[in-house]
C-alpha cells in the first residue's frame, strides 16, 4: 500500500471513528454548552436588567460581541421581545 493510500484510508477511518464517538452525544453536549452560554449571557447583561454586577466595566466591553446571540437568547428565556429598552433586536 502506498503512503497516499494509507493516508486516505486513515482519514476515512478517523472520520468514521469520530462520527461514531460524537454522533450519539452531539445534542446532549450542545445543550450543556448552551446552558453555560446562557448563564454567561445573563452575567454580561445583568447590569442592564437591574442586577448589580461588580464587573460591569468589563462586561460592557463584551456586549457588542454577544449582540448577535442576544435575540436567540431572549427567545429561549421565554421573552418574546427584547427585555431591554436600549437594545432593540426585534
Amino acid at each position: 500500500m502506498s503512503l497516499d493510500k494509507f493516508k486516505a484510508w486513515f482519514r476515512q477511518a478517523s472520520f468514521y471513528a469520530e462520527e461514531a464517538y460524537n454522533a450519539p452525544y452531539r445534542s446532549a453536549i450542545a445543550r450543556a454548552k448552551r446552558e453555560q452560554d446562557d448563564l454567561f449571557m445573563l452575567l454580561i447583561f445583568s447590569e442592564m436588567m437591574g442586577v448589580p454586577n461588580p464587573a460591569s466595566y468589563y462586561t460592557l466591553e463584551l456586549q457588542p460581541l454577544l449582540m448577535e446571540r442576544f435575540h436567540d437568547w431572549h427567545i429561549r428565556m421565554g421573552m418574546e421581545h427584547s427585555p431591554l429598552d436600549n437594545v432593540k433586536c426585534c
Binding site: Y16, E19, A20, A23, P24, R26, A30, R31
Partner: peptide, 20 residues
C-alpha cells in the same frame, strides 16, 4: 440545527442505533 437534527450517514446511524 446541527444539534439534535443532523442528517447522518446510514452506516454510522446504524452503529449508533445498534449499540444503544
Amino acid at each position: 440545527d446541527g444539534v439534535d437534527y443532523v442528517p447522518t450517514n446510514k452506516y454510522i446511524l446504524w452503529g449508533h442505533h445498534f449499540t444503544s
